[in-house]
Amino acid sequence: MRILVTGTAGFVGAALAQRLLARGDEVWGLDNHNNYYDPALKEARLALFADHPGYTHQRADLADAGAVNQAFATFRPERVVNLAAQAGVRYSLQNPQAYIQSNLVGFGNILEACRHGGVQHLVYASSSSVYGANRKLPFAVEDAVDHPVSLYAATKKANELMAHTYSHLYGLPTTGLRFFTVYGPWGRPDMSPMLFADRISRGEPIDVFNFGNHSRDFTYIDDIVEGVIRTLDHPAQPDPSDDPMQPNPGTSAAPYRVYNIGNDQPVQLLRFIELMEQALGRTVEKRLLPMQPGDVPDTWADVSALRRDVGYAPSTSIEDGVARFVAWYREYSAH
Rank of each mutant, 00 (worst) to 15 (best):
L270Q: 13
Q278G: 05
V228I: 15
Y166R: 09
V81Y: 03
V258M: 06
P293W: 03
R135I: 14
R188S: 14
A73T: 12
V123A: 08
L275N: 04
R178E: 07
F211E: 15
G212K: 04
H214P: 00
T299D: 09
A17L: 05
F11E: 06
E331C: 00
N34W: 03
S317L: 05
V68K: 01
L172A: 02
T56E: 11
V27G: 05
S333Q: 11
Q268W: 13
L288W: 00
R282D: 09
I224W: 08
L41R: 08
Q86W: 08
Y332I: 00
Y170C: 13
A14F: 06
G54S: 04
A22V: 10
G88T: 05
D243L: 05
S102L: 01
V149I: 15
Q278R: 10
A236E: 10
A305V: 07
V322S: 08
Q246N: 14
S201L: 09
V89Q: 02
A140Y: 00
R188T: 09
D143N: 12
V258R: 00
F196I: 14
N103M: 04
Y37N: 04
N95K: 14
Q101P: 00
I206E: 09
H116K: 10
D223G: 11
T251S: 13
P53I: 06
N32H: 12
D31W: 02
A323F: 04
F272V: 05
M1E: 11
V119D: 10
G262H: 11
D239L: 06
V123S: 12
T316I: 12
A15C: 08
I110R: 03
E331I: 00
G24L: 08
T56V: 14
D239S: 07
G281T: 07
L16P: 05
F196M: 11
C114T: 05
D31R: 01
Q268T: 07
S127K: 14
D302V: 08
A153H: 02
L48R: 14
I221Q: 11
P189I: 13
N82D: 12
G10L: 03
M291H: 01
T251F: 02
D207M: 05
L177S: 02
F107K: 04
N34P: 10
P185D: 06
P138D: 03
G262Y: 07
F75H: 06
Y220F: 15
L289D: 02
R199Q: 12
D264E: 15
H335W: 02
D239G: 11
Q97N: 08
G171I: 00
D309M: 02
E274H: 15
G108V: 06
Q265S: 15
F49K: 00
A63L: 01
Q292H: 07
R90I: 09
T283K: 12
H164N: 14
A305G: 10
G262N: 08
T181P: 00
A254I: 00
F179Y: 15
F325D: 00
L195N: 05
F196V: 08
V284I: 04
G108W: 04
N103Q: 02
I100F: 15
V267Q: 10
L48N: 04
L111Y: 09
R202N: 13
P238A: 09
P185E: 10
L20I: 10
P77I: 04
Y55T: 05
P193Y: 07
R76G: 08
V310F: 06
